[in-house]
Amino acid sequence: MTGMELHCDTCARQRIFEQPACTDHPRGSCPDRACTACGAAIVVAPVILLMDRRSRVFVKRHERQRRERQRREQQRRAA
């Protein structure tokens, strides 16, 4: 296992983090890292969970519709 130096919140300083052995992960190795000094863990989320998978056209249309609803609501309140 090779370690990487990351900031440990528990130790409040730069520490070496290593990849622990993982028996419940399908590929046998966890994507997570553990501090070698105190054992604090950093959970690494898969990239696919961090991405917005909607198309840009859908997002822009949604934003335009939301602005229109807000504008109509403001006009209704003013009347």
Rank of each mutant, 00 (worst) to 15 (best):
C30R: 00
T36S: 15
G39V: 02
Q74R: 14
A21W: 08
Q14W: 06
T10W: 00
Q65W: 04
V59Y: 05
C8D: 05
H25P: 08
R76N: 04
A34L: 13
C11Q: 05
A21M: 11
V44P: 05
M51V: 11
T10M: 11
I48S: 09
R66Y: 05
P31I: 12
G28N: 12
I42F: 14
C38E: 10
A37R: 01
C11E: 02
M1Y: 04
R72E: 07
H25M: 15
R33M: 08
R67N: 04
R56E: 14
A79I: 03
A45F: 10
Q19G: 05
E63R: 08
E73F: 10
M51I: 06
Q14I: 15
R71F: 08
R54A: 09
V47G: 09
A21K: 08
R53Q: 13
P20F: 15
R61G: 04
F17V: 03
R71D: 02
F17W: 09
E63F: 06
L49W: 03
A78G: 05
Q75K: 10
E68C: 03
C35E: 12
R67F: 00
T36F: 09
D32I: 04
V47N: 04
D24T: 11
E5D: 13
A41N: 05
C38H: 12
R54Q: 11
M4Y: 00
E5L: 07
D24K: 11
E18F: 06
R15S: 15
V47L: 15
E18N: 04
P46F: 10
A41E: 14
A78N: 06
M4R: 01
R69V: 05
A41P: 04
C8W: 00
R53Y: 05
R77P: 09
G39Q: 12
Q19L: 01
C35R: 01
Q14E: 12
C8G: 09
V59S: 08
G3K: 00
C11R: 02
H7F: 07
D52H: 09
C38G: 14
R69G: 02
C11I: 00
A21R: 11
Q65L: 11
H62G: 03
R56M: 13
R27I: 09
T23D: 13
R15L: 12
A40P: 02
H25W: 13
Q65F: 05
R69Q: 06
Q19A: 09
V47K: 02
C35I: 02
V59P: 02
A41R: 13
R72Y: 05
A37Q: 04
D32V: 02
R56D: 13
E5N: 14
E73P: 05
Q65H: 07
R15E: 15
I16S: 00
T23L: 12
E18I: 13
Q70D: 09
A78Q: 10
L49Q: 07
Q14R: 15
R27K: 13
A78V: 03
L6K: 14
R67T: 02
V57H: 08
F17Y: 15
D9T: 10
A34W: 02
M1D: 05
